[in-house]
Every structure is written in C-alpha cells, then in structure tokens.
C-alpha cells in the first residue's frame, strides 16, 4: 500500500471528545445546585435506609410530644413524640424508592415503545402514538389515582401506577430523535450492510437517545415525587405508620394548631427535592443538549 503514509495525515479539527461532559455539569449554576441538593437528599435517604437516623422513625416517646425544633430534635417532634428529622429521612427513602422505581419502569417501557414507533413508522407509529395521546389526555394524578384504586395501595403499586402514567413522556422523548436518525446515513448504511433490525435499534439507535432520556429522567423523578406525595396525601400511597413526605404533609395539616413545623417541614422538604431535581434536569439539558450531539 503505497498510500498508507499519505492518508494517515493529521486529523481534521479538534473535536472535543464526549467524556468530560458530565464534569461540565458542575460548571453550570443550576447543575451544581441541583447536584448538591439531590446529593444531600440521597445521602440522607441512604443513612435512613441503613437505620442511621437519630431516632427510630416510628419510635414513639409520649414525653416529648409537639416539641418545636431544639438541639435534641432539630426539626421538632410530632403528636406521638416521634422525631421529625428521622421521619423526613425515612420519608425520603420511600419517596425516592417510589420515584426511582416508577421512573425506571416508565423510562424502560417508554423508550422502548418510542424507539419502535420511530423506527418502524407507518401503522406501528400511528398506533403507539394514538394510545400515547389517550394516556396524555388524562391528568397524571387522576390516572395514577385510578390505577392505585384498582391495584390497591402500598409503595409497589404506587410505583407501578406512577410508572404507567409516565410512560407516554418517554415515548415522546425517544421517538423524536429516532425519527430524525432513521434517515441518517449511518443508520441507512447499517440496513444496507444487512444488520438486523434489533441490532440497528439497540446498538445504533438506542445509544443516541441517552442524553434526551437522561434529562427526561431527572425531570420525571421530580414529578414522580410530587405524584407520590399527592397519592400519599390522599391516603393511597405509602401507608402509616411508614413515614412518607406526602403522608406527613397530610397529617401535619390537621395539627397546624399544635405545631406549624409539622406541616411546614415536610412541605419544604418536598419543594427542595423537587427544585433540586429540576435544577439537575436543566443542568443536564445544558450539557447534554442532543442538538449539539453529532
């Protein structure tokens, strides 16, 4: 090969490699704030899951009922003398557990259907998208309520219900890029090279959906936490005495007279986690924007 040396000339243009993108996340303001908030929430939940709360989340102590925040009880105690901080930490566990499992369900199934709809097009696409539209037409909370009523309460069913409700979001998110990519030369090349549809879908199309799906996951997690809290607030989510943020808001509502912190603390906790996840989602969108993903 006389022209090996000739062709191995300098590569053209210094294209930034795609690895350091996630570290860029912390250079954006919202990405940094979101990461810190979500990180703290996860640490608290992990500690609670390991049983490392200051007090037992369900341990009652009649001597310290309705204590406002003190050094011993930084967030006060409730009507049974249970430590609110410990309950918030355990509540985070169930909230995050439900949110993560529901979004995992939604992201897996939704992305798969979106991939299939976008890749096959025609009637497959039309069918999936019409069903999707029907799901979209229901307010999320109503649909989740209906599903939980049918399945019965408990965190598994709550997660399943929220998961089903969020599937259409991921169908949409996955289908868009697939529609665009289907016509891209390297996907066409894969067809001409005789690659199977499964291979094209999983090996050549799916990796391109990563950034769009990750951004959506962060946002869906925050909606899932709101939905889980709402369901628990309505008595259809996590069941007492297991703590849950939504349940605590619901209980605190009746006790505002005796201790305003019983309502304020869990509500603020929900807001902080939700805002944190949204900030993280925004930050991820900024660094992973699929538009500059060539």
């Amino acid at each position: 090969m006389s022209d090996i040396a000739q062709a191995s000339g300098a590569p053209v243009g210094a294209v930034p490699s795609r690895r350091p993108r996630l570290t860029r996340l912390w250079r954006t303001k919202s990405g940094l704030a979101g990461t810190i908030i979500v990180g703290v929430a996860i640490i608290l939940a992990v500690l609670a899951a390991l049983g490392l709360t200051p007090y037992g989340p369900t341990a009652q102590d009649p001597t310290v009922r309705f204590q406002s925040p003190t050094a011993a009880y930084p967030l006060g105690t409730d009507q049974f003398g249970r430590d609110v901080l410990s309950r918030i930490m355990s509540g985070l566990v169930s909230s995050l557990l439900v949110a993560v499992s529901s979004v995992a369900i939604a992201a897996t199934i939704g992305t798969l259907f979106g991939l299939i709809a976008g890749f096959f097009g025609e009637w497959v696409d039309r069918t999936i998208m019409r069903i999707n539209d029907v799901f979209f037409a229901f307010p999320a909370i109503l649909l989740a309520l209906a599903i939980v009523s049918a399945l019965g309460s408990g965190w598994r069913n709550t997660a399943l219900a929220i998961g089903i409700v969020f599937i259409p979001l991921f169908v949409r998110v996955a289908r868009g890029p697939v529609l665009a990519l289907r016509e891209v030369d390297y996907i066409q090349a894969a067809r001409v090279l005789g690659f199977s549809r499964t291979r094209i879908l999983l090996r050549h199309l799916l990796p391109n959906l990563g950034s769009a799906v990750i951004v959506q996951v962060a946002l869906a997690l925050s909606w899932a936490i709101i939905t889980e809290s709402s369901l628990s607030f309505l008595g259809l989510g996590t069941q007492p005495p297991m703590p849950s943020l939504g349940l605590m808001v619901s209980e605190g509502r009746n006790l505002v007279g005796q201790g305003a912190w019983l309502l304020v603390v869990p509500s603020v906790a929900i807001v902080i986690v939700v805002v944190g996840l949204n900030l993280l989602g925004d930050g991820l969108r900024d660094v992973l924007d699929p538009k500059d993903d060539r």
């Binding site: 090969m1 022209d3 062709a7 191995s8 000339g9 590569p11 053209v12 294209v15």
Partner: peptide, 29 residues
Amino acid sequence: GLVGLSADFAGRYPHELSGGQRQRVGIAR
C-alpha cells in the same frame, strides 16, 4: 490496508479523521 489506511486507524473515532479518511473507512466497511 486495502483502502490505504494504516492499522492504527482501527482505534480511532470518526471525528478524529479527515473527510477523505472517513470516505476510505466507508469503502472498507
């Protein structure tokens, strides 16, 4: 080698290649 590229091209990503080199890879594939 058939399309005039040395073996160390196997380890490179497309964005590290020039237009002509990419077209050679397309032909090799």
